[in-house]
């Protein structure tokens, strides 16, 4: 069974007359959708626990001109891809049981196949990361491995 089978949540958004962007609502809607069974997609935000399909990659790249934002849980080795804001992915992963300290944001450019490690959610002085970029080589390495696996880098 492919639990990443995309289930389009958009009709539900429209029924409830909710905006797509606020992360709290996104998660609430995610829960609602999840109640239906196999939902793992919030607009263009997709939760990945195994390798992305071509269709998922295509959808995730639609938001920002072939550039895919991701938020990775380096402990659970899952990620969200797509969407306009890293905090949306962060909220989805927190709602799925991830811990804040394990989440790191970045981007994957489909045109150049390069990864970056920059996100507003990465600013965590208490984890020795006062920058928007991930400073720790170890964490970067973990991100690389997970992204390589999930995004067919």
């Amino acid at each position: 069974m492919n639990i990443f089978n995309s289930f389009q949540c958009k009709p539900l958004w429209e029924d409830l007359k909710l905006k797509v962007n606020p992360p709290a609502l996104a998660f609430k809607i995610g829960e609602s959708c999840f109640g239906y069974g196999l939902v793992r997609q919030w607009g263009m935000l997709i939760l990945l626990e195994s390798r992305a399909t071509d269709e998922q990659m295509k959808k995730a790249a639609e938001d920002i001109d072939e550039y895919i934002k991701f938020v990775v849980d380096i402990k659970r080795e899952v990620a969200t891809i797509g969407g306009l804001r890293h905090y949306e992915g962060e909220q989805v992963l927190l709602g799925e049981g991830s811990k804040q300290g394990d989440l790191w944001g970045g981007g994957f450019d489909l045109e150049t196949k390069e990864v970056d490690y920059d996100s507003m959610i990465n600013i965590r002085p208490h984890q020795d990361n006062p920058s928007r970029t991930v400073l720790s080589p170890d964490i970067r390495s973990k991100i690389d491995i997970i992204i390589m696996e999930l995004l067919k880098k």
Binding site: D65, K69, R85, D109, E111, T112, D118, S119, R132
Partner: peptide, 21 residues
Amino acid sequence: DRDWAEDALTWANVLTHRAKL
């Protein structure tokens, strides 16, 4: 605000990646 800042950061990254193109 955070959204404006994130948009600017996103394009900083995209342009950095693609400058060579």
